[in-house]
Write a protein that binds this DNA or RNA. Structure first.
Length: 726
DNA sequence: AGCACGCCGACT
DNA sequence: GTCGGCGTGCTC
């Protein structure tokens, strides 16, 4: 028998449906908008969020509503967060329930953490005094509550000593809230010494704290003190009693960063990232919601943490592509941080040595405040940057390193300093062919070349992950031992380096390193401590890590990526080269950045060598405007119908109605879209309807083969970075 | 997203 | 003759 229910509420459920479902509220159950609840959906139970009246999807017969089963005892999801979820869903064309799910993804954190038992002296003395009991008593008389185990350990006795004393009534128990996951950040723990420029910038940032929404873009070369400056804004926010979110690309969320924070604020920030231990994840989620954690440093998903009173968002390395999530919910955390800040009416700080074009444009347009930090702090000189013209100073036959670069490396390691050789290409060689018949090894699934990984003895596809052992004979003509590796990868450079410097310690750092992120961090730390002479690395050495002994940075092939058709190629190359050469020169020693290129007059190379980024950025912005890409300030989405352009228009109309926040839904016909795809003019998100596997590759292949007549209806969303969200 | 239902190919 | 592949539809 179902009891009569007095009302129903909308509940956002984690399903790909257009809006919340309605549920009955059993008599006596108290729910308000934001309450986190358990509701039945078909045969299963899911976690949902009570939503706001007016957001319901189509009405369902009020008599047939199923009841909410449980209300979790946790702070309700705030109106700002609910508004944010709705906005993100509309903007990214994602069902709101799937966005909402990101805000409640710490499942067991929904109930309060269990209280911790604490022991307090009653004043009763033990029946018999022993040395062990004496020690326990001495410790416990500090006026604080101890845990059973903590007290026993501190006193150097077994738990049974404490337990016996409890039985004798020496202690009574009190229940205490569980200990905080991190200590309290103290804004006045260790105020830094700032240069005049930094002080200026810090003061301007500080004055924006508490003044409502605003975005400030801080830029300045590696080592100019951006972090110190935004730390002052964090300190000010803490003084005003509000919480802070620091977003970082996952790879930059290192113990070095956490320690730097601790040195300034006296304790570490709460951490939030994908490989956080489940127990810790729950603690951080819960305590952030309760306001017990005041500062969280996290990867992009931290944006969906339910802060109790968020007062500032910092997005460090704002140009980093890791801010884009490209599975399930597609969003750029940097952009959504700006939206979150606007909704919460709080300031945002975007920081980068190499800001993205779109942030530059927003600063130029006056939408963002601009703070520029002109130089490196104190004695840390910038490296001396030069290009090596590979036409004039070519490598020896069979090698890839110019004599000029080898000499610089020799100089550095000879002085006991370190050298870094950067090549953004994993493996040994990007292409393998048969010298006899010319057969090229191609991926059976995709059409890309298979990359030889000599350490593993495999040919691998970097696109789809396909791998096969390196054969001894050519599969085409059967000739033995005539396979030839074309071009360098980091493994091949390592071979060349070991040939030239056999007695030096070399290390290859790439994502192929076994042992995962943890191992990688350890190796990076080891390098920073001087435990290698020559480092050969892919782009992951360009991100965040500082190597104080690194005095030579060589870019093996600066031209990679400049001619691949990506409209952001120049920008990306500039950012990468600036970041990697910025790894050198923080010690006060003379340091050098040497950039091997066949295009020494290319605008990217000129900008890097001269250190004058402004001209380069201005040029890039101009190029963008000329190139016919969708104009700035729009999210361009595209519907492609494989049949006709007219059908695409129909889909687009439906989408526009469904997602009014999407500023622009451009329509490309299938031929235009195929062309754009092939030329790499846009970055696409392809959703193939009617094929559950969302087999992008096979659709693309069909599209390339059959052109506009490829079968199947396809929805394509262009991922030009949105410029303006306001 | 998850889960059930439903219809056509290779196998104990 | 079934097991199982994934296409389709549904969830307040």
């Amino acid at each position: 028998m179902t009891p009569a229910t007095s009302r129903s509420v909308p509940v956002m459920v984690p399903l790909p449906v257009a809006g919340p479902y309605s549920y009955a509220v059993p008599d006596g159950m108290a729910v308000i908008p934001g309450s986190v609840v358990q509701v039945p959906v078909g045969p299963r139970k899911v976690i949902g969020i009570v939503w706001d009246e007016g957001d319901e999807t189509g009405a369902v017969d009020a008599k047939k509503l199923r009841p909410i089963e449980h209300v979790f005892d946790c702070p309700p999801i705030s109106p700002a967060m609910r508004k944010f979820i709705n906005w993100v869903a509309g903007y990214t064309l994602t069902p709101p329930g799937l966005v909402a799910r990101m805000a409640v993804r710490a499942p067991t954190a929904l109930e309060p953490e269990p209280m911790v038992e604490g022991l307090r002296l009653t004043g009763t003395t033990p029946e018999r005094m022993t040395p062990a009991r004496q020690r326990v008593l001495e410790l416990a008389s500090d006026g604080f509550s101890w845990t059973r185990l903590g007290l026993a350990r501190a006193a150097g006795v077994s738990a049974s000593v404490v337990e016996t004393m409890m039985k004798q009534g020496v202690f009574d128990t009190v229940f205490l809230p569980p200990p905080p996951a991190v200590g309290a950040a103290d804004p006045d723990y260790a105020p830094p010494e700032l240069s005049a420029d930094q002080r200026d910038a810090a003061d301007r940032l500080k004055s924006s704290v508490g003044q409502g929404f605003g975005v400030t873009l801080i830029d300045g070369v590696t080592g100019s003190g951006k972090t110190e400056v935004y730390f002052e804004a964090i300190a000010e926010t803490l003084r005003q009693g509000r919480q802070v979110l620091i977003l970082l690309p996952e790879i930059a969320l290192t113990s070095a960063f956490l320690e730097r924070f601790e040195a300034r604020f006296g304790s570490k920030p709460g951490e939030w990232h994908s490989d956080l231990a489940p127990r810790m994840r729950e603690k951080v989620w819960r305590q952030t919601a309760e306001g017990r954690i005041r500062v969280v440093a996290g990867a992009r998903s931290a944006l969906f943490l339910p802060f109790e009173d968020l007062g500032l968002i910092v997005v460090d390395e704002e140009h980093d592509t890791a801010y884009k999530q490209e599975d399930r919910v597609f969003y750029n955390a940097r952009d959504m941080a700006v939206v979150r800040a606007r909704i919460g009416d709080i300031p945002t700080v975007l920081a980068s040595a190499t800001p993205s074009i779109e942030s530059q444009v927003n600063a130029l347009a006056g939408r963002y405040e601009r703070l520029h930090l002109p130089g490196r702090f104190a004695e840390a000189a910038l490296p001396d940057l030069k290009t090596i013209d590979m036409r004039r100073d070519p490598p020896a036959r069979g090698g890839f390193l110019s004599p000029v670069l080898l000499k610089a490396v020799e100089g550095a390691v000879g002085r006991g300093e370190q050298a870094l050789l950067f090549l953004n290409r994993r493996g040994y060689a990007p292409l393998t062919l048969c010298r006899v018949c010319g057969h090229r090894f191609q991926c059976p699934n995709c059409s890309s070349w298979l990359v030889e990984h000599r350490f593993r003895g495999q040919l691998m596809c970097h696109h789809c992950g396909h791998a096969e052992p390196v054969p001894e004979a050519c599969p085409e003509c059967g000739t033995l031992d005539h396979l030839v590796a074309c071009g360098p990868g980091v493994e091949r450079i390592a071979e060349e380096v070991e040939h030239h410097f056999p007695e030096k310690r070399t290390i290859v750092l790439s994502s192929d390193l076994s042992g995962g992120v943890k191992r990688l961090r350890l190796e990076l730390e080891a390098v920073a401590n001087g435990e290698a002479d020559i480092v050969i690395g892919t782009q992951l050495v360009a991100k965040g890590h500082n190597f104080p002994l690194m005095t030579v940075v060589g870019v093996v092939d600066a031209d990679i990526g400049l001619a691949n058709g990506d409209p952001r190629a120049a920008e990306r190359t500039f950012q990468l080269l600036a970041q990697v050469t910025g790894r050198a020169g923080r010690t006060g020693l003379t340091s050098h950045g040497l950039i091997q290129t066949y295009q020494p007059t290319h605008p990217v190379m000129r900008a890097i060598v001269s250190g004058e980024a402004e001209g380069f950025y201005a040029r890039e912005i101009g190029e963008r405007e000329k190139s016919g890409l969708p104009p700035f300030g729009r999210l361009a989405s595209v519907i492609v119908s494989a049949e006709t352009r007219g059908e695409a228009e129909t889909h687009a109309r439906a989408l526009r109605a469904a997602a009014p926040q999407s500023r622009s839904i451009s329509v490309l016909g299938p031929a235009e879209a195929a062309l754009a795809l092939i030329r790499g003019r846009y970055r696409f998100r392809l959703l193939v309807h009617g094929a559950r596997g969302d087999d992008m590759q096979s659709f693309l292949a069909a599209m390339l083969e059959n052109g506009p007549r490829a079968r199947g209806s396809v929805k394509v969303q262009v991922d030009i970075d949105p410029q303006s969200f306001l």
